[in-house]
Design a protein around this nucleic acid. Structure first.
Length: 723
DNA sequence: AATATTCCCGTTTTT
DNA sequence: CGGGAATATT
């Protein structure tokens, strides 16, 4: 070891605690790092990667796999920052598998230029598959078949093998749909997200040579967020490290929040059984949160049974109380939140150090409005929404057709976008003809003779074909130029940008897409349009969240994993919302919901507020809510409950001797009420009489009384006030 | 064929 | 409430 290397190694081990240092210095053999929130895991992982790269391996031999693009990018940046380890691979599982499959495309039995389709396209295809099986879409909604097929793929069950098993009628039907769906995928040379993992896993499993090559290339493999791996990912990790067994898994069972996507908590819980010789390092000291926040989070997660017991501790200060705020309505909640944030900012916390988390994206709206009213700048992490915009999908579809002529979904999308007079009838005739002659649509469109049979529309189809042909040069261009070129030559520019009466948004979105492509191309100068498409298929909007932009960040609890903020507000902590419950749902997992809440809470460094509204507008209807059981589980002393008064509102009249509802929606049949003289009762009916609403109540004494709503001396009694 | 309208659906989280 | 698909209209 040279003196320079020695100095570097010393620097990598600087300011680490005992367990951290142990993990960083571990080189050969399996390693499990059980890392609690805020325990410096990323630091350990990146230092370890760098340490490997300057002691026992070259950077090229180290592979770090993360779960999200955001995590992968952060890892890459921090490794780069350490100055050693440039040339290391850090990417998501899906990206890694996609790259693998491109590299060994022929050996994997895949067509060149295969398309990666997203959930939307997958739904469309699934729909087609259901129809192809002559089943009713009502009985087999694609959205309900999807999880079954996804699960099968996660378990490396091909359609054939799936169909081979002993199945009940329901599953046999799913098997038929699965087979048909696979046929459609093959026909359009496409893979869905699950295929990427499955095909890569199968390739590694069945192709000795490929595996040997990869094992030789990647000698040290690091899998972050191991608790979120599904069976296919688990297999990839295992197969990649079969000879050397240099698999380092890091994670925290208490932060497993992707069970709904097939993640198997068992993978991390049984790591020690899979790798009996594994070294296990526990990182339990928290450097992030105050004692009170940590204690509250710990008291919550203690309610879970399926976990590895762990003792979180910190030397940090006790800090301000964790606040639980209960308010009347979702609007009150948002208002109070905005005021709370404004106060934080006034007291000196930077806006970019503040975040609002919620269970579902739908909750962001009220918050956005309130923040706008307060004049607070914010950014919303919107998942895949950006890539679902019509204009974005349109332009990507053009590129897809160019790259993969078999991509029929993309072709059908662009054939009449912008409108060029090729209507459903013509399209149907083309599709039928293609099916009958067993030719691809694109081929057919380029066949003058076949097109001529279309009669009047023939000219338009030919014109479209020429447009496509004219777009071909885009394939040779850098991504941003290719996008520009397609935009102008396809007619999309005229449709979305030049259109004087058009909206602003499409233009801005297209601009954003092009600048994203520029950034991509700048970082990867040799990347092709195909690479860009692959990248675009595997990213989400969450990946572009900046934490240095002077803005408050709004995001889902899922997107919050791996981040930290000085002040965190979690809203909508209500039964059914957090924990989230669907009426019929079988897959409900309360422990996972609890972990989700735990993840959110442990993002906070100093201030943590959880709030809940008694009434919330859900799908346009005001509904009563019930306090989340999770709030009741925060039993530590450092938690402070607050009742926030309803905001002043012109619609809310002061009640005579009681609290009057803001509107009738607050009073539903069955609402429990208290009357100053008659005692407790329950609302029997609400009826409109002339310009008044009458409320009819049955009291404990058995009597039924009725008043006009504005004169009733009734006070609503909330569930949680009853004991 | 394109646009306007209605209606009906479902309704989480992300690669 | 809001998006998408089916239906009506121009």
């Amino acid at each position: 070891m040279t003196a320079g290397t020695q100095a570097t190694v010393a620097r990598l081990l600087e300011d680490l605690t005992g367990p951290q240092r142990e993990a960083v210095q571990h080189t050969d053999g399996p390693l499990l790092i059980l890392a609690g929130p805020g325990s410096g895991k990323t630091r350990v992982v990146t230092r370890r990667a760098a340490h490997l790269a300057c002691t026992v391996a070259t950077p090229e031999q180290v592979l770090a796999v993360a779960f999200t693009n955001k995590a992968a990018r952060e890892m890459q940046q921090r490794i780069d920052h350490l100055g050693v380890g440039r040339g290391m691979t850090a990417c998501t599982f899906h990206a890694f598998c996609a790259r693998l499959l491109r590299l060994y495309q022929a050996r994997a039995g895949l067509p060149p230029g295969f398309t990666i389709i997203d959930q939307d396209d997958r739904r469309k295809l699934l729909r087609k598959a259901v129809e192809g099986c002559e089943l009713s879409l009502a009985n087999f909604p694609p959205a309900s078949v999807e999880p079954a097929i996804s699960k099968a793929k996660n378990e490396l069950l091909s359609a054939e093998r799936f169909a081979d098993r002993d199945l009940d009628w329901q599953d046999r039907t799913v098997a038929r749909i699965y087979l048909c769906y696979e046929k459609l995928l093959r026909a359009m040379a496409a893979l869905d997200f699950d295929d990427l993992l499955m095909r890569a896993a199968v390739l590694l499993r069945d192709d000795e040579q490929v595996r040997a090559e990869l094992e030789d290339r990647f000698r040290y493999v690091l899998v972050d967020e191991y608790q979120d791996t599904n069976a296919a990912q688990y297999t990839v990790g295992r197969l990649l490290t079969r000879q050397r067994r240099n698999l380092c898994a890091t994670g925290d069972p208490d932060q497993s929040i992707y069970g709904w996507r097939g993640a198997n908590l068992e993978n991390i819980l049984t790591f020690e059984r899979d790798y009996p010789e594994a070294r296990v390092v526990r990182l339990e000291q928290n450097y992030r949160s105050t004692r009170r926040i940590l204690a509250a989070a710990d008291s919550l997660i203690a309610g879970n049974l399926r976990r590895k017991a762990k003792t979180l501790w910190t030397e940090n200060v006790e800090g301000p109380a964790v606040r639980i705020v209960e308010v009347e309505t979702g609007e009150d909640e948002a208002d109070g939140l905005a005021r709370g944030i404004a106060e934080r900012i006034r007291e000196g916390t930077g806006a970019d150090r503040i975040a609002v988390f919620y269970r579902t994206n739908a909750l962001s709206r009220a918050v956005e409005e309130a923040l706008m009213r307060e004049g607070i700048r914010y950014q919303v992490a919107r998942g895949v929404e950006f890539y679902n915009r019509k204009e974005i999908r349109d332009i990507l579809a053009y590129l897809r057709v160019l790259v993969n002529p078999a991509d029929e979904i993309a072709l059908l999308r662009v054939i009449n976008t912008p409108p060029r007079g090729i209507g459903p009838t013509t399209v149907q005739r083309l599709v039928d003809l293609a099916t009958a002659e067993r030719r691809s649509l694109l081929e057919l469109i380029g066949d003058g003779e076949a097109v001529r049979t279309l009669g009047r529309s023939a000219g338009r189809v030919t014109a479209f074909c020429e447009v496509l042909h004219g777009l071909r040069p885009a394939l040779e261009m850098p991504a941003p130029q290719a996008l520009q070129f397609v935009l102008s030559q396809s007619g999309l520019y005229a449709l979305y940008v030049a259109e004087p009466s058009g909206e602003e948004a499409p233009r801005a979105n297209l601009d954003e897409l092009i600048s994203a492509a520029s950034v991509f191309q700048r970082d990867r100068p040799h990347a092709s349009v195909l690479d860009w498409l692959e990248y675009a298929a595997l990213v989400s909007d969450v990946d572009s969240v900046r934490t240095d932009a002077g803005m408050v960040t709004l995001m889902t609890l899922h997107a919050a994993k791996g981040l930290e903020f000085d002040a965190v507000f979690i809203i909508g902590v209500e039964e059914g919302l957090l924990p989230f419950r669907r009426n019929d749902e079988d897959g409900f997992d309360e422990e996972e919901e609890r972990r989700l809440c735990f993840v959110g809470m442990t993002r906070a460094r100093r201030w943590l507020t959880l709030s809940r509204a008694r009434y919330r507008v859900i799908r346009g209807v005001t509904e009563r809510t019930v306090r989340s059981p999770f709030l009741n589980e925060l039993t530590t002393a450092g938690v402070e409950w607050t009742e926030q008064p309803a905001r002043e509102s012109s619609t809310r009249q002061p009640a005579a001797g009681g609290r009057l509802p803001a509107d009738i929606a607050e009073w539903t049949i069955g609402t429990v009420v208290r009357h100053p003289r008659h005692g407790m009762g329950q609302v029997l009916a609400l009826e409109r009489v002339a310009r008044h609403t009458h409320v009819r109540v049955r009291f404990e004494d058995g009597a039924t009384r009725a008043w006009a709503l504005e004169f009733a001396e009734l006070q609503r009694v909330d569930f949680d006030e009853l004991d």
